[in-house]
Amino acid sequence: MNAKNPGKWWLYVLLSLAVVVVAAPFVWMVLGSFKTTAELRQSPPTWLPETATLDNYTQLFSRLDFGTYFFNSTVVAVVVTAGNLLFCSMLGYALAMLEFRGKRALFGLVMGTLLIPGVVTFVPLFVLVANAGLIDTLPGLMLPFLAAPFGVFLMRQFILGLPRDLLDAGRVDGAGELRIFAKIILPLCGPALATLGILTFLGSWNNFLWPLVVAQTEDTYTLPVALALYSKGQNATNYGLLLAGATVVVIPVLMVFLAFQRRVIEGIATTGIK
């Protein structure tokens, strides 16, 4: 197929329909968050709100404490992202460019844990964090995720593609090893850091199982934990409120994703891991 032939028209129609189906739940969620619960119980359902109201959002941030949950989610995601960017690029550089004893074994060990399901570690992790007195604290939510094998893999792959001459040039100029990393290598890792940063942020923001067991009072709830628990509790039938809550969870990351989408999609295409 060449550039003059844009393709079959019916394929555009089909793909457009598919995009509508994929996007419909989100559109319906956002529109629904401005509806009253009475309207949400109507059959057939409405698309546009008949009487648009901000009441759901007011309740979310006044009667419930979604401001706090939003803050918790943000702090945890930012710290986890910063930790992974720093620690994974340090190790990734060492594995890609430096020679040291135990290198192969270390790389094998880190990659070997990529396959292990999260559920395998969570019982002893809970015991560990509980014994450290970190249950129901923000550090308890962050610590287990500060150093993830996926980031090491991604950074190592990227740094392997950089010319080794950089290293030798730095050494000839008399720069120390750590200085070479900080001043020469790291500034060149922008694309990989952006990909890792955005994927880690999204992963942390959407993380559920661990915050569910560690956050035990409303002070430390993250957004997904709060939303999941409210959807089962006394607010379970307050449909407008739950849709507004879902909107607050989804829309900020959707904005971040759209801003950096090229990086995310390239990252998935090259590493194959989301």
Partner: peptide, 21 residues
């Protein structure tokens, strides 16, 4: 982009929405 978007959203939020759908 359209097809990929659901992947980045919270499963919890998506589950809440689909419960209504």
């Amino acid at each position: 982009l359209g097809f990929y978007t659901p992947v980045v959203t919270s499963i919890v939020a998506v589950a809440v929405v689909w419960q209504f759908l």
